[in-house]
């Protein structure tokens, strides 16, 4: 156990404390907040953001950034909805096509970033405009989905006690989370991502497949965006080319609040989960309160983000001070 004690990571701990404090305060202030139903809803309502944030975690860990995910999600929703409603496809092949498209899109961005040493910020900014435009090309209007497969999926609920249950969207989110934790800790790809973000020059001299890893990070994030888009079609029952604008920034905020350094190399998928739940808790509390405008969510997130980057700065400067003495 000692080695776990040593590995406790202060930003992660801070995030956990913030989540507990927020949830605790809301539970005291609002009747019925402290319930399994609210917890189940946290996962269900934030599944789209959560899946996107999981993919984003790897991008940021590798030292990169991806601004295209909001647009990629919108593109996916409208593609899936149009294929199902407009072209009468079965949802499963439609989703597979969407996942392939998302992965390919991410792969292309990763290739540009790696092969031509272009800044990820600009490449994915281009990708953001491109995917958003493509979403409107597929369908300029919101498309509803009425399909027995969707009804069947939406009926899947995992009871977690009381009258609360986790819907399929929450289950997909949790599955993605578990897979990501495994990948981050127990695969060479995961560890290479950390190494790449920690020091790309060293990683190259250490003989790691730096180029391949970097491209893969964006491809995986493209896949995650498509998966988040599919979950969004379940959640809203439609596809909408205007959906998810600004979601990439929410995802970045969740990742950073979760203790991942924007400079790469340090962080965790677990932290990102906590970051997403903090988002969700504030949102639920605002709904429970009923008096406050939803823009208070933005204010709270903004302040938290500033607080966390200050904390991270303090920790990293202390770490460097220690290693130079």
């Amino acid at each position: 156990m000692n080695r776990f004690a040593r590995r406790i990571n202060i930003p992660l701990l801070a995030t956990a404390v913030v989540l507990v404090v927020l949830f605790g305060t809301a539970s005291v202030l609002y009747d019925g907040f402290f319930s399994l139903r609210v917890i189940a809803n946290l996962f269900a309502d934030n599944a789209v953001l959560g899946i996107a944030s999981v993919g984003m975690t790897f991008v940021i860990l590798s030292g990169g950034i991806d601004l295209s995910i909001g647009s990629a999600i919108a593109f996916t929703t409208v593609l899936v909805a149009t294929l199902i409603t407009g072209h009468h496809w079965h949802p499963v092949p439609a989703m597979l096509v969407a996942l392939a498209a998302g992965t390919l899109f991410g792969l292309g961005q990763g290739f540009l970033i790696q092969r031509f040493e272009l800044p990820a910020f600009l490449v994915t900014l281009g990708g953001m405009f491109f995917a958003r435009g493509m979403a409107f090309v597929v369908n300029a209007e919101s498309v509803g989905i009425n399909n027995p497969f969707y009804d069947a999926v939406l009926n899947v609920r995992l009871p977690i006690g009381g009258r609360a249950a986790l819907p399929a969207t929450a289950l997909i989110f949790l599955a993605a989370f578990v897979v990501a934790v495994f990948v981050a800790h127990f695969t060479t790809y995961g560890r290479n991502t950390f190494a790449l973000g920690g020091n790309p020059d060293s990683a190259r001299l250490m003989g790691l497949p730096v180029g391949r890893t970097q491209i893969a990070v964006y491809a995986v994030n493209g896949f995650c965006s498509a998966l988040a888009g599919i979950v969004a079609t379940f959640y809203t029952g439609s596809g909408n080319p205007a959906m998810g604008s600004g979601l990439e920034l929410d995802a970045i905020a969740a990742v950073v609040i979760g203790g991942t350094l924007l400079t790469g190399g340090v962080g965790s998928v677990e932290g990102t989960l906590l970051g997403v739940l903090i988002f969700g808790t504030i949102q639920s509390a605002l709904v429970f309160d009923g008096r406050l405008n939803s823009w208070w969510l933005r204010i709270a997130i903004g302040l938290l983000l500033l607080l966390f980057i200050l904390l991270q700065k303090a920790i990293t400067s202390r770490a460097t001070a220690r290693s130079t003495t």
Binding site: R191, F194, A195, G197, G198, N199, D201, S202, A203, L205, M206, G265, V266, S323
Partner: peptide, 9 residues
């Protein structure tokens, strides 16, 4: 001379 390792791992 410059240690070529990953400081954060």
């Amino acid at each position: 001379q410059e240690v070529n390792l990953i400081p954060t791992l």
